[in-house]
């Protein structure tokens, strides 16, 4: 089949339609079931981390290698002559992309991936641009939800922790708003979901509500998406006072739905107690592994026009 994502850029989750998202998820599922170790044979992928990110880089580079592709690149901008010589990103992209078939990048400044895509003909995949977007994280989250629930439609999903600064939860909420989910937001007042996201959800007619603790809603959830409340944003007394409302332990999962899955973008500190790991609801490590399949799916679709799904 011809696929609509062939040679496209993946910059912002808002650029993808519901059909695009479904194609990516089906492809990730197919590649998880049926590995394709020769698919990117003879393809060279640039993996350029102008800012270090160990987890995203290892996951992406594993994806390339599992599909039989080769990698060029660097793991931190500071180690390259680009930063030291003051070259513009535009020039760096022109040069590096002339060596490769696709360009995966992480950059500390917002808009870097969009700009890069304007200076090359090869597909650019955004691996995180400052505080803006991290679409491959969103895709692996969506894939994990789809895999565990068999659907993305009309799910009850709670987001817990730092909802103000966490680009992960912003992008995921935006993507899931295409699927009519019900959202529950649980955060300290100082880290509440920003108004502009709430306005977007209201405009799209999405149901959402704000709650003071996980226990208020946990029994009616399909997905509990945890994030870390950063201790450094509070003074010690205040942190001790609020943290119990945003920490999860196994005792809180006694009466939950059988299909509930607890997700977390990782790394976790103490917001998910270790005793949750042994419950059937813990799915955050499988979620991290799914990052490889979601990124494989993107590479397969961007670089292979006639890609056949093995479903």
């Amino acid at each position: 089949m011809n696929n609509p994502l062939y040679q496209k850029n993946i910059i912002s989750i808002a650029d993808l339609s519901r059909t695009d998202l479904e194609l990516i998820l089906q492809t990730a599922h197919s590649l998880k079931q049926t590995p394709q170790p020769e698919l990117l044979k003879n393809k060279v992928i640039a993996s350029c981390f102008f800012e270090a990110s160990t987890r995203t880089r290892l996951s992406f580079e594993t994806a390339v290698q599992r599909l039989g592709g080769s990698i060029i690149g660097f793991d931190s901008g500071g180690n390259t002559s680009l930063a030291q010589k003051g070259e513009t990103l535009a020039d760096s992209v022109k040069v590096i992309s002339s060596y490769a078939d696709a360009f995966f990048m992480r950059h500390p400044q917002e808009g870097a991936a969009r700009l890069a895509s304007e200076f090359t003909e090869i597909p650019v995949i955004n691996g995180g641009d400052g505080a803006n977007q991290h679409p491959t994280q969103t895709l692996l989250d969506l894939f994990t939800i789809y895999e565990t629930q068999d659907t993305l439609d009309k799910l009850n999903i709670a987001f817990v922790g730092d909802l103000k600064y966490g680009r992960t939860v912003h992008s995921l909420a935006q993507a899931l708003s295409l699927f009519n989910c019900n959202f529950y937001f649980i955060a300290p007042d100082a880290l509440a979901m920003p108004d502009y996201i709430l306005e977007e959800l209201t405009d799209k007619g999405i149901n959402y509500s704000v709650h003071a603790s996980i226990e208020e809603v946990v029994d009616s959830l399909d997905i509990l998406y945890m994030t870390r409340v950063q201790k450094e944003r509070f003074d010690e007394t205040e942190y001790q006072h609020i943290k119990s409302a945003f920490l999860l332990n196994a005792q809180m999962l006694t009466n939950v739905r059988n299909n509930l899955k607890v997700l977390h973008p990782l790394p976790r500190i103490d917001e998910i107690h270790n005793n949750v790991d042994d419950t059937p609801y813990a799915y955050y490590f499988q979620q991290a592994q799914n990052g490889v399949y979601a990124r494989q799916a993107l590479l397969a679709l961007l670089l292979t026009n006639q890609f056949q799904l093995e479903v």
Partner: peptide
């Protein structure tokens, strides 16, 4: 207005 926006120091 975003001081960390890439548009400030690139040829665009």
């Amino acid at each position: 207005p975003n001081s960390n926006c890439i548009s400030h120091n690139e040829p665009v």
